[in-house]
Amino acid sequence: MKKRILCALLLCALLMALSVPAFAAAPPQVQTVSLGIPCTVTVDVGKHGRVSVGGTTYTGASIRAFKVDPGTKLAFVITPDKGYSVSVLTLTGEDVLDRLLDGELDVAVLRDETLLVRFARDTSPSPTPTPTPTLTPTPTQKPAPTPTPAPTQKPAPTPTPAPTPRRFPFGPKTGDESAVSLWAALAAVSALGCAAAAAIWKKKDKK
């Protein structure tokens, strides 16, 4: 019986092997002719920051364009002014804020592209909230930080709603603010369950 099965399997494999040459890729009959047209890269920078690329820096409230050959790789260095951060970063309408790494955005230009950058006042709880725009070279900027886009934001003394520290006192600070005791209890229950299962298994083996 086993030999019959083996023969049948070998016969099937033989038939499949014979059919492989028939599946060989057809030789190409198409010649591809290509051409490249220089791509226009437009940089639209908002106030309170600057963008540098290829040795050129574009400062706030400006729109500039330049041309590169398709396939060129560009590294945009985006630097917000002190007290500000990048709030909007799009590439030809596509949100690419998550691709910004250490203030740098890498782009392989394959078509006409428009980079739009906007900056907003940094709302993270810093101990010195005084806005000092001394880094901006443009003389038109006033030091008074008037209309920020979030009217509900105040320099509140309690910046986060979590009043008690929920991490181990000897551990590093992480972004996880959940109660550690709950996780410890869950781990204990899991360990008890595993021990019970092992004990039951041993009893069954003895029987």
Partner: peptide
């Protein structure tokens, strides 16, 4: 020969274009 006019070159958006030429 493939013939492309100057106006066609200058009027096209940036990027890499391709066309197939099929032989038989």
């Amino acid at each position: 020969n493939i013939v492309i006019s100057r106006s066609a070159w200058e009027g096209a958006d940036g990027g890499v274009y391709t066309t197939p030429v099929t032989y038989s």
